[in-house]
């Protein structure tokens, strides 16, 4: 047996790697909440495309003062109801000709428009440039929607969080108050309000905000009540954190996903509501443009000059669809459980 023994010289032994060297390899850098959300959102093609669309539309709309070729409210009665005309395009519908008694006639020549003047989206019944009006109108509609959404968020979060944190009788009373408020038919309220106040951006926003923050407050309250029971909130309380600190430091960040999603859904409904009010004639004041007033002007001459209605309608559709699809994508990111 001793023959089987193989002698290994001491020099062949080396110390094993030290504990420190054996430690697990460095972990990749942690993703923050926003980075992680963005990574997930990028996988959703519809959300990315609509996000890009929204950015483009918003940029165009807010650059309206720079981009608009004409003053949106300036009337050129001589140039009224001109069809779209694009430089170098001879396609019917984009070449400035319109159908009259079965023949195509050059509307621009008829109206004696200078050779180098183009109305890319045509003009309306007062000869105002539709492209400029669409840019300005989208800008106004988006502004109203964003402000309404921000107010929704502020009031809804404040009310919902307060209600949930107080709990008990206060919560009960606040929720019953909400139910009474939401029982008032909002359309009637809005129409009445706009009869009393001067129509305009401020009163439209005020009218919309009166009832639209209620669902937000409910969502916030429900989520806050759920989060309040979590052990990390209990831990914060045991550490001595104040109620305000718990509400803003622990509960709000943890319900932010759902709140963001709700806010994103409330923007298109605000746009739609504004459009609806302006279309009915209780919204934006003449002559200012918004998508609703453009549609209102367009549908009256729809049989003769269909482009005057289709263009604002198409803008409205794209905005609504983009916001809804984008909000859908956000919901999948922030709140995967809500997916049907």
């Amino acid at each position: 047996m001793s023959e089987a023994k193989v002698l290994i010289p001491d020099s062949a032994f080396v110390p094993a790697a030290s504990a420190a060297a054996q430690a697990e390899p460095e972990l990749p850098r942690a993703l923050s909440f926003l980075e992680d959300s963005w990574r997930k959102l990028r996988k959703n093609k519809a959300a990315v495309v609509t996000l890009a669309l929204l950015i483009i539309i918003t940029t165009l709309a807010f650059l309206a003062p720079v981009l608009a070729p004409f003053d949106p409210n300036e009337q050129h009665l001589a140039h009224k109801n001109l069809p779209p005309k694009w430089p170098g395009v001879s396609l019917n519908g984009l070449n400035g000709t319109s159908e009259f008694r079965g023949r195509r006639i050059d509307a621009y020549a008829l109206a004696k428009v200078p050779e180098d003047q183009y109305y890319l989206l045509g003009t309306d019944e007062f000869g105002r440039d539709l492209l400029s009006r669409c840019l300005w109108g989208t800008r106004i509609s988006l502004t109203i929607a964003f402000i309404a959404a921000v107010l929704d968020l502020t009031i809804g979060i404040a009310y919902g969080l307060f209600s949930a944190m107080k709990g008990g009788r206060v919560d009960n009373a606040m929720q019953r108050a909400l139910e009474i408020l939401s029982g008032i038919p909002s359309l009637v309220l809005v129409v009445l309000m706009l009869l009393v106040f001067q129509p305009g951006i401020a009163s439209i926003i005020l009218a919309m905000v009166i009832s639209s923050w209620i669902p937000m407050a409910r969502v916030v309250r429900a989520e806050a009540l759920k989060t309040k029971q979590m052990e990390y909130v209990q831990a914060a309380r045991a550490l001595g954190a104040s109620e305000v600190k718990i509400a803003l430091g622990h509960i709000l960040p943890n319900i932010s996903g759902i709140v963001i999603v709700r806010a994103m859904f409330s923007i298109p409904s605000a746009i739609f509501f504004e459009t609806f009010l302006s279309f009915l004639g209780v919204g934006m004041r003449i002559p200012n443009a918004s998508i609703g007033t453009l549609l209102n002007g367009g549908y009256k001459v729809f049989r003769l000059y269909p482009y005057q209605m289709f263009i604002p309608a198409a803008i409205l559709c794209v905005i609504m669809l983009s916001f809804n699809l984008f909000a859908d994508g956000l919901r999948d990111v922030f709140d995967p459980k809500m997916k049907e």
């Binding site: 052990e231 831990a235 914060a236 550490l239 960040p253």
Partner: peptide, 15 residues
């Protein structure tokens, strides 16, 4: 006086 909780998955604020 402090407390250590049972569920380590629920007792730390994920944000």
């Amino acid at each position: 006086a402090q407390i250590i909780f049972q569920d380590p998955y629920a007792s730390l604020d994920p944000r």
